[in-house]
Amino acid sequence: MDWSAIFSNTAQGLFSPATMAFALAALGLAMHFGFAGLLNFGIAGFMAIGAYGYAISILTFGFEWWQGILVSLVASVIFSLILGIPTLRLRGDYLAIVTIAAAEILRLLFLTNAFVDVTGSADGLSGYHNSFRAANPFPVGDYGFGPWTYNNNEMWVLVLGLLTLVICVSILLLLINSPWGRVIKGIREDEDAVRALGKNVFAYKMQALIIGGIFGSLGGIVYALPSSVNPGVYVTSLTFFVWTALLLGGAATIFGPVLGAVIFWVLQAFLSNVLPQLVSSGLLPFISSIQASTIRFILVGVGLMLLVIYRPQGILGDKKELTFVK
């Protein structure tokens, strides 16, 4: 057992673009589900829009990196409008069905051979980094210490990711603690009651959907910043991983999704390193090391189930809330 490698890889999970991407996406879901009560099972679609919007606008249209980010955000707003206009008037469960289907439609559109010139089909997209790296304020060199040592490009991604995360958390804090947030939470509890008090429920739900969608697509961009856009990433299981991170931390909290994403990735990194090593050192019989590294996904599923059954409010959730869950 190579414990130093295991710990070093685990430690990297603490602070990686993927962790930040998950935190952002989970923050979007917290807005959707935790605060507004919108059951969005298509967060992977929002992330795909972010990633593809960014890469395509650079590769196909020759935009600068920051223009690419703007294009992604506009695209996610349009996606929210298309999703929301027909479904937000209906009951919550319909949104769940429509979002899961819409995310799949998007993924298949990105995957199909018809648009291979633009989307790269199954190969995905890569090599869109020039503009982003040219804007890198960090001089060439290594930064950080121990397991957290990064070259200047990785550092740039991390700093930008962290900055995005801090901005999004601050915005969510301001929104949720404002009268706007009060209306949103009221809608989560009972939208007819809020309507009877003279609030335009549809408009509020749409605003929540758009804001959460923007967070989700920012997550997709941060996910795509360091390397490439791969259509195999934006599958339905990504949606459920983000949900796991959200429920782990606490759906109706603001720091919960961030904490949940960190725990999720640290555990993922730990298990994907430790399980194959357990096999090779003979401690885990009957399975190959390839099988061992996929066991972690089974564990994620089991973890999600245990979480929902025994601690549905999540780690940071208010225990009082649980007393009254119907």
Binding site: L175, S178, P179, R182, G186, Q207, A252, K326
Partner: peptide
């Protein structure tokens, strides 16, 4: 229709009219 997971006071404040902070941009 009590809004269960809002406090009693929050329930009340939700009824108030003309709170600009209920608009998205003002709320920030």
């Amino acid at each position: 229709k009590a809004l269960s997971l809002l406090t009693v006071l929050e329930n009340m404040k939700l009824g108030a009219k003309d709170q600009r902070g209920e608009k998205l941009l003002y709320s920030l």
